[in-house]
Design a protein around this nucleic acid. Structure first.
Lengths: 181, 181
DNA sequence: AAAGTTTATGTTATTATATAACATATTTAT
DNA sequence: ATAAATATGTTATATAATAACATAAACTTT
């Protein structure tokens, strides 16, 4: 059995999320790969949508992808300012975020008022997250059986879903194992 | 077949939510009953918890229960000010909200930054909502099958859930039927 | 009932998050 | 080259929430 980089990107049993590493939480994955893959994917998607991934937007996306921890708009603004000579104002950040949200390249985590890269911007884009209170990492996941129950619940009430937000806050495997008071 | 007040409080098939009227969305339910029942229930719960449901806290809860539409802290503040002679500052509101959240009497809707009365403060308190973009009503629901899939997804990742937020945004049955552009 | 303790509320200031409105620059289309 | 559309810059402001400290009300102990 040969070990490759991709071999660390396995899914837990029962989950539909295919390329999404459990090990994101344990910081043991090839994150450089995450970034380059996200940037390439972003270019493809924007090209396909006839949307312009400008220098600024690309820079914002790259900064968000520095980690799997949702990043607030103001910290992001500071990072942009640090990489630039001129000052950066809120609308600059929020417009880039708006664009990236529209293109499905990032998600907004409502419980944190923060933004994180979408790990499967091509597929379902289901917007389901496991958010660790200890390390700050947000793990995106999808599961057909879960989505079926969601759709069922909505149908029971005659409700039409336009967008959904499922955010489970707690402790990831790594942090649960580690000692945290 | 005799028609009673409670008869309107039926649940859709497949849902576990027992006393929760579909008709909340269509504004055809006995809302006075919602309020009085919520206030009585609140008193019981606080008494049981040894928590003090003060005049202010009760007033805030009553104001939140004026409708099934999540209410922002600042609108709530204005309503409090309108009912009083003195001015009301944010901490007054937020402390009352914090108390009511702790007692499980209200929920915070993250996608709206707003607060709504909990329609089953005794039971699961699952924090699942259908939020209508058109009329603003938030319908709380619970479903065992859904919760099972949620727990399953978390377990797949070795994740321990401390709190969860499921918010489905779209159109309620009534608004979907009605003409809205 | 008086004194001490805890809990709740009042008050002022500030932090955090996000958007409105308008100006300038850049890119795309004609 | 010009016009139109799109993106970014800039200033001001709206909206949401909390920190820090002062006062008041409620319970507790004697």
């Amino acid at each position: 059995m040969t070990s490759t980089k991709m071999s660390s990107h396995t899914s837990p049993a029962g989950s539909d999320t295919p390329p999404l590493p459990t090990s994101i939480a344990s910081q043991q994955h090839d994150h450089t790969h995450c970034i380059t893959s996200a940037m390439t994917s972003a270019q493809d998607i924007c090209a396909r949508n006839g949307a312009r991934l400008t220098k600024l937007r690309e820079q914002v996306l790259r900064l968000i992808w520095q980690s799997h921890k949702p990043l607030g708009a103001y910290p992001l603004m500071d990072m942009l300012a640090a990489e630039s000579t001129r000052r950066v104002a809120p609308p600059t950040v929020y417009r880039a975020l708006e664009f990236l949200l529209e293109q499905g390249l990032i998600h907004r985590i409502n419980t944190l008022n923060a933004y994180v890269g979408c790990t499967h911007p091509n597929g379902d884009h289901a917007n389901n997250f496991l958010i660790c209170e200890h390390c700050g990492v947000a793990i995106e996941f999808s599961a057909t059986a879960l989505q079926d129950r969601i759709n069922e619940s909505a149908a029971d009430f005659g409700f039409s879903i336009r967008s959904q937000s499922i955010e489970l806050v707690g402790s990831c495997e790594h942090c649960e194992a580690t000692d945290h008071e």
